[in-house]
Design a binder for these strands. Sequence first.
DNA 1: CCATCAATCCAACGACTGATGGATAATCCC
DNA 2: GGGATTATCCATCAGTCGTTGGATTGATGG
Lengths: 214, 214
Amino acid sequence: MPRRRPGRPRRDDQRPTRELVLAAATALFAERGFDAVSVRDVAAAAGVDVATVAHHTGTKAQLYDACFARVFSAEREAVEAAGDRARAALAAGPADAVRALHDLVDVFVDFLEDRPETTALWLRRWLEPRRHTELDRRYAAPLYAQVEQLLVAASAAGALVEPAPHVTVRSLVWAVHGHVVALAAGAGSEARERREFRVFVHRLLDGLYPPAIP
Amino acid sequence: MPRRRPGRPRRDDQRPTRELVLAAATALFAERGFDAVSVRDVAAAAGVDVATVAHHTGTKAQLYDACFARVFSAEREAVEAAGDRARAALAAGPADAVRALHDLVDVFVDFLEDRPETTALWLRRWLEPRRHTELDRRYAAPLYAQVEQLLVAASAAGALVEPAPHVTVRSLVWAVHGHVVALAAGAGSEARERREFRVFVHRLLDGLYPPAIP
DNA sequence: CCATCAATCCAACGACTGATGGATAATCCC
DNA sequence: GGGATTATCCATCAGTCGTTGGATTGATGG
C-alpha cells in the first residue's frame, strides 16, 4: 500500500472524494448502525484520512444525515417516477388504475430488493426517537400519500372505508422491509422467496380492495 | 441523594438487584440500541455502581443477551399459551379454527402494543448480521410455525397453496412491528389506530384465506 | 513566478468507554 | 461469635472515540 503524502492528489482520475466517502459510510452505517461505526472506520473504508472525511462531510452526525438524504432521495425519485406513470393510467379507467397500483408496488419491491441498505437505514432511522418524526414528514408521508391515493382510486367505485388506506399502505411497506431482511438472512431459495412475496402482495391488494371490473 | 457506602445493603426490601438492572438495561437498549448505551448509563438508571452491574450480569454483551432472553421468552410464552387454546379449538372443526386463528393474532398484537420495547429489540436484533440466524432459530421459527400451522388448518379444506403461508406470517409479523412503531411515533388517535389495524389484520386473513364455512 | 486556495495527512487533545482489582460492609452458616 | 460468602462501591487502567490545529502538497489565476 503506497502511503500517500499530504498535499493534493486524487482529482479527476476517479469519483470525487465526497462520493467515495458517502458510499463507504452508507455501507457501513447500514450494516452496523451509527454508533458502531467510527469516523476512522469510514475513512479507512474510503482510503482517506479522518481529517479528510471531516473536511468533506463535516461532523459524524452530518455525515450520517448526508447518507440518509442520498439513499432516501433515490428511493423517492424511483417511486415518484412510477407514480407519474400510475396517475396517467388512472385517467384511463378503474381497470387500468388497478394495474397501475400493482405496478407501483412492484417498483417499490424491486427497488428495495436491489438496495437492501435502504431497508437497513429505514429501520435504523425508525428506531431513533427524535428523528423519525422529521423522517416521516420529509420522506415517508409523501410516498405513503401517493400509494394511498392510488389505492382509493383503484377501489371499486371509490367506496373504500375500511380497512383505512393508510394502515394498509404502512403494513405493506413494513411487509416489504421484512421480506428484504429475510432475503438478507438468506433462508431458502432467493428467487423463490421473491416470487412468493409478489404473489402475497398482489393477493393482498386484490383481497382487500377487489377490482371494480372482475 | 443519600450516598450509599460499600458493603451489602439492599436485600429483600425490594426486587432483587439483578432484576432492577435488567429492567433498566432493557428500557435503555430498546430506546437507544447497544452501542449508544454505556454500562454506566445502565448502572445510573438502576441506581447502582458499574461494578455491581458487572457482578450480576457479567460483560455488556452478556447483559444485552440477558435482556433479549427475558423479553423474548415472555413473548413466546404468551403466544404459546394462546397457541394451546387454538389447537384445542382446532379439533372442534374449521369454523372454530378460523376463530382461533384470529384470536391468536389478536394476542400477538395486544402483546406487542403493550410492550413496545419488544418490537424495538426485535428490530435491532434483525439488523445485526451475525445474530439474527440464531435468533430466528430459537424464537422466531417456532412462533412462525405455530401461526403457520393454524393458518393451513383454518384454510378451506386445507387447499392452501399460495401465497406461501410462511410469507403471509412473516409479513403479518412485520406489519405488527410497523404498527407499533407508528403508535410510538404518536401520529393521530392511538385508540383509533389500534382499532383500524385490527380491522386490517382480520380482513387480510379473511381475504387471503377465506373461511371454509361462510 | 508568485499568491491564493483547496485537498490531504499527521498528531494530538480531552472525553468517554468496558472492564477489573481491591476495600468495605452486611449476611449466612456453623 | 467468627470465618466464609455475597453484595456493593471506589479508583483506575488501557483503549477508542470525535474533533481540530497545523503542516504539506498540488492546482489555479494573474
